[in-house]
C-alpha cells in the first residue's frame, strides 16, 4: 500500500449540539484521487475546512506528509503544500484573473515585505501566473476582472490559484457545482489531467465526475464516514445504496 499523504484520526467537530464531524478516520494516499460523497449537510465541507486549517477540530489529529498539522493555521498549511477551492467560489473579485493567480504565486515566492517595486511588473510573478492561466484554459482572459468572468471561469480561476501554490494535496469542494454540461465536462477533463501529478480530495455531487475521476471513494453521512473503497465496491455497497445513493439511477 502506498503511503498516506493525509492521515486523519478520530476527528471530531461540533457546532453547538450538532456533530458535523463524528470520529472520522481517513487516509488519502499519495497520488490518489479520493472522492468524498454524501448528501447535503453530511459534513463534507466542514471536513475539507479542517484539512485546510480554516476550521480546527475539537478532537483528533490530522497528519500531513508525516507531520502533525492539527494545530497549524491555513497559511502555514498552504506552505506545507495543501491547497483548496471553496464550495462557494472564492476569488479576488476586484482583481484581474492574472492578478489573482499572480498573488497566489507571490505567496510562495519569498517575502512579501517588499514595498517599492511594482508587483504587476514582476516577471517572476506574472510569467508563472500567465502559464497557469493558460493551462486551465483561461489564457485569453487574464486581463478580465474576476467579477466579470462567467461562473465556470471563476471556478477554473480558483483552481488555477490553488495550483499556483504548487500543492501536494488539492482539496476541491464541488468544483463542477453550478456549471453547465459543457463546462463541467471540460472541468472533469482538466481535473483528470491533474490525476497522478497531484493528490486530490474531491467533494462532489456530480456522480459522473466522481466515477470518472476517483481512485477511491468515501461516503459520508451525518458526520460519519460509512464506507471507503474503490468505485466498484462503493457502487455495490448495500449500506451506501440504502443510505445515500438510494435509487439505482444515481449510479
Amino acid at each position: 500500500m502506498a503511503d498516506a499523504l493525509l492521515e486523519v484520526r478520530r476527528l471530531v467537530k461540533s457546532f453547538g449540539g450538532l456533530i458535523a464531524t463524528n470520529r472520522v478516520d481517513l487516509e488519502v494516499l499519495d497520488g490518489e484521487t479520493h472522492a468524498i460523497i454524501g448528501p447535503n449537510g453530511a459534513g463534507k465541507t466542514t471536513l475539507i475546512a479542517q484539512f485546510a486549517g480554516d476550521l480546527h477540530p475539537d478532537q483528533g489529529t490530522i497528519t500531513f506528509a508525516g507531520r502533525d498539522v492539527t494545530a497549524l493555521a491555513a497559511p502555514a498549511r498552504s506552505h506545507l503544500g495543501i491547497a483548496r477551492s471553496f464550495q462557494i467560489t472564492s476569488v479576488f473579485r476586484e482583481f484581474t484573473a492574472l492578478d489573482n493567480v499572480a498573488l497566489a504565486v507571490q505567496a510562495h515566492a519569498g517575502s512579501s515585505f517588499a514595498f517599492w517595486r511594482p508587483a504587476r511588473a514582476d516577471r517572476a510573478l506574472r510569467d508563472p501566473a500567465r502559464a497557469m492561466l493558460e493551462s486551465v484554459g483561461l489564457g485569453a482572459r487574464g486581463d478580465v476582472v474576476a467579477a466579470n468572468l462567467a461562473h465556470g471561469e471563476q471556478r477554473q480561476l480558483e483552481i488555477a490559484m490553488a495550483l499556483a501554490t504548487r500543492p501536494r494535496l488539492l482539496l476541491l469542494d464541488e468544483p463542477v457545482a453550478g456549471m453547465g454540461l459543457d463546462e463541467s465536462q471540460q472541468m472533469i477533463r482538466f481535473l483528470g489531467s491533474l490525476k497522478g501529478r497531484h493528490t486530490m480530495v474531491l467533494v462532489e455531487h456530480d456522480m459522473d465526475a466522481v466515477f470518472t475521476l476517483a481512485d477511491r471513494i468515501s461516503v459520508m453521512l451525518y458526520g460519519r464516514i460509512i464506507a471507503t473503497g474503490a468505485p466498484e465496491a462503493i457502487r455495490a455497497n448495500e449500506e451506501v445504496r440504502r443510505a445515500y445513493l438510494g435509487d439505482e439511477r444515481a449510479l
Binding site: 485546510a52 480554516d54 493555521a73 491555513a74 497559511p75 502555514a76 498552504s78 506552505h79 491547497a83 483548496r84 471553496f86 472564492s90 476569488v91 479576488f92 473579485r93 476586484e94 482583481f95 492578478d99 499572480a102 498573488l103 497566489a104 507571490q106 505567496a107 510562495h108 512579501s112 515585505f113 517588499a114 514595498f115 517599492w116 517595486r117 511594482p118 508587483a119 504587476r120 514582476d122 510573478l125 490559484m161 490553488a162 499556483a164 501554490t165
Partner: peptide, 28 residues
C-alpha cells in the same frame, strides 16, 4: 509605490477576500 508593491497587493488582497488570502498562504 506602496500600494502597487508586493506588500500593497497583499494589503489589497486582504480587503478583497481574507479567506482566500489565507488559503493561498498569506498570514495576513
Amino acid at each position: 509605490r506602496l500600494i502597487n508593491s508586493r506588500f500593497g497587493m497583499v494589503i489589497r488582497g486582504g480587503r478583497s477576500n481574507e479567506a482566500r488570502m489565507r488559503a493561498i498562504g498569506f498570514a495576513t
